[in-house]
Design a protein around this nucleic acid. Structure first.
Lengths: 332, 332
DNA sequence: TTGTAAGCGTTATCAT
DNA sequence: ATGATAACGCTTACAA
């Protein structure tokens, strides 16, 4: 591997001139540029990434922390982050966080220690306060899928409440009046907000809340299964069930089938997130589009703008959900 | 941020001693260790990752290149790679390759330029020769999901032929004699092998090949859809269809439903890969388990062993598929 | 516009 | 066992 020094020798110029050419500095004569470029070509010179990082204290890499790598939701997000980063010639150091506060903090520290210029975080366990504090450090922090008032400009999130409001309102407009809700774990912000949207819609339409028709599950198919079973075995009749995510909705559909209740004829089901497999299901799942990929891309844009001084695009922090009607819902 | 220098001052020892303690060198007195550790603690010292990389020419990071980040198959692989790497305190630099040879080469070069110690590659476009050559360089190369004879020890792959042989044989044993096959794109090695397994099973059972019952699709739902439609509209009757992956199988099931052919009563369908959503489908998809996650972990182990001199575990290069029977197949 | 030289924070080779 | 000191390959004042 040749170094900047060898290039400078071959080109007959100084180290700094080579560096200037590499970094496209102004005030370099065409003649120097040409000589340097020719020498680089001849030596098949490749800048040493690590040395540049050390000297410039900029690693051109951003750390990404998510709860898990696989899973339709996170992988869609990662995909957006990675592609946007690659386009800008930065790279992503991706790790998956643990399942408790300490692990999450360690993961963040790991990324900081690796000299990432910025961090894109999708975290559930660390506190708002911790993240706020972190933001005061030299590593830029950006948070996806969570709203923290004190660092609002660095948060990218959807209006979860609006999302389930849209779903619930739609079903009510379709004539449903007995609506069940399968909630996500209530220690997660988004799960609480989604439940609120459901409640708000019922309230706006003067439908009273029936606690027996709300089941707190955990966003997994197992949870969705238990929830649906509980509704079916309960005493409160219902003609529709709104789910806090698509996984639980898919489980609810399966349980319905096992118990011989036809979807959507006897019961409408709607999900949340619009993960890609929701159209593979039978019936295809009606759901709420969650623009996670776009959010991820925007988060990267914000990093590019703030940390890498790139193009002055306008940053949007709040994203809007959208109703997707497929086959799993119908009028009552 | 404090440096090794400040630690050495506070501890009253030299730079080298601090370095030695950090790296757990032998021949360091307990007294020195204690002093250094205390000083580190007091200063909340964190080693500078970049400086270490430069000085030691070891970045402790491995580059991972996949065709795409999302998608059930790749994300399962990435998940395995990342977790295994994190456990070893290494990190993953993940990028997604392009959709042609040049882009793929660029992506690889990108990773090499970033001083990755090793590369884990899941690539389709670059040639065997290119990869063989690459392996001669200083960056260790490991290939997942592809077998290249000249660098066999660095390849991790499943027996694709066996996989579809298992599927086909099973259906034949269940009494099916007219079996259609939805193939993957034949410029991909795994797609060819999978098709071969099907042919071999037919041959072993003395069932003659009907070209009208083989359709080359592209591993996507759209392709699977076209394939199934073509079979249904063709003149060759069939009672089972074997698909080269689960996405196409899910599409085939949907088309069947649209055309009012009951699965599995009128037609058995089997997939390949056992991606996680295959059990969400209705009917749940029978398929071939592809141990991609295990393969990914093994690939990391091989890197740990060869590049980072870690534990002498035995490396396994070839992985075996397994028949998973669910609801989409039945006896004929 | 170009060159000189001092870092950047480590590791690693020598002596001692 | 410990300490100087020279790399590692580049960036960046500062000087010319």
């Amino acid at each position: 591997m040749s170094t900047i020094y060898q290039v400078s020798e071959l080109a007959g110029v100084s180290l700094s001139s080579v560096s200037r050419v590499m970094n496209n500095h102004e005030h370099v004569s065409q003649r120097t540029k040409d000589k340097v470029r020719a020498a680089m070509e001849q030596l098949d010179y490749r800048p040493n990434f690590t040395a540049r990082s050390l000297a410039s204290s900029c690693s051109n890499s951003v750390g990404v922390l998510v709860a898990e790598i696989s899973g339709p939701f996170y992988s869609d997000m990662l995909s957006g982050v990675e592609s946007e980063l690659s386009n800008a010639n930065k790279h992503a150091v991706i790790i998956s966080g643990g399942c408790n506060e300490q692990k999450e903090q360690e993961a963040i520290q790991f990324l900081i220690d690796r000299n990432c210029d910025a961090l894109i975080l999708c975290v559930d366990y660390v506190t708002d306060e911790y993240l706020t504090n972190l933001s005061k450090g030299s590593t830029q922090i950006v948070v996806i899928n969570r709203y923290i008032e004190s660092i609002a400009d660095n948060c990218f999130y959807i209006d979860n409440c609006l999302g389930s409001y849209q779903a619930t309102k739609y079903l009510i407009e379709q004539g449903h009046t007995k609506l069940a809700y399968i909630a996500g774990p209530q220690w997660k912000q988004d799960a609480v907000e989604r439940l609120n949207g459901y409640k708000k819609a019922l309230n706006d339409c003067n439908i009273s809340l029936d606690d027996a028709l709300i089941y707190e599950a955990d966003y997994t198919t197992l949870g969705g299964r238990d929830a649906m079973l509980s509704f079916l075995k309960g005493n409160s009749p219902f003609s529709a069930v709104i789910c806090a995510n698509d996984e639980m909705a898919s489980a609810a559909m399966r349980v319905a089938r096992e118990e011989h209740v036809n979807i959507p004829e006897e019961c409408s089901i709607i999900g949340f997130d619009n993960v890609y497999f929701s159209e593979y299901l039978y019936p295809q799942l009606s759901t709420i589009e969650n623009p996670i990929n776009a959010m991820a891309r925007m988060a990267v844009q914000s990093v590019l703008k703030n940390k890498y001084n790139q193009k002055k695009i306008t940053i949007q922090n709040r994203f809007i959900t959208e109703l997707i009607i497929r086959e799993s819902t119908q009028a009552n």
